[in-house]
């Protein structure tokens, strides 16, 4: 008889467009799996209790806290991390705006911040600054004071809206 509960779980998923098969410990969270097993160290573990947002990645098209989802739950999932979003040039404009506006200092929050920002930008339109701030309210940055980040996102929203109209 097979064990009903597994302490190691087989998962089959797609990460950054590439197929991945893995066997993960039952209690391992997504961010440790991505960082330690797949070497995708772009997103970071910082608080591991769901508050800081440094581990934010895309799972099945939405932003999730990598520390609040188990790797075992990724079976069949489509995961995108900062590495894949960079390689695919999906958020190139946002990254360039962050650099131009110096919307990052130490860079530790930045991969999570970019995933959060992209989720807002994907809704389209040019959000109010307050709405941008509200959307980032779960992503902690200790360096910038947030204003540069808000500026960069606002800039990209305008750029994209301009392109859509044109």
């Amino acid at each position: 008889m097979t064990r009903i509960f597994d302490d190691k779980v087989d998962i089959d998923l797609t990460v950054n467009g590439e197929p991945v098969e893995a066997r993960v410990p039952a209690g391992q969270h997504v961010i440790d799996f991505l960082r330690q097993d797949l070497g995708l160290t772009g997103a970071h573990a910082s608080c591991e209790h769901g508050v800081c947002g440094a581990c934010t990645v895309q799972v099945d098209g939405t932003s999730v806290r990598g520390c609040l989802m188990l790797a075992a739950q990724l079976d069949g999932a489509d995961v995108w991390t900062i590495e894949g979003l960079s390689d695919s040039e999906t958020i190139r404009d946002l990254q360039e705006a962050f650099i131009a506006r110096n919307a990052l200092q130490c860079g530790f929050c930045t991969p999570g911040m970019l995933v959060a920002a992209e989720e807002l930008l994907a809704l389209g339109g040019v959000p109010e600054r307050a709405a941008i701030r509200e959307h980032l309210s779960g992503n902690y940055c200790r360096c910038t004071g947030y204003e540069a980040i808000v500026d960069a996102i606002e800039t990209v929203a305008r750029q994209r809206a301009g392109k859509v109209q044109a």
């Binding site: 064990r3 009903i4 597994d6 302490d7 039952a26």
Partner: peptide
């Protein structure tokens, strides 16, 4: 801060 789970099963 690493979880110690007894096991996992997907319903």
């Amino acid at each position: 801060m690493k979880a110690s789970a007894g096991g996992y099963a997907r319903a």
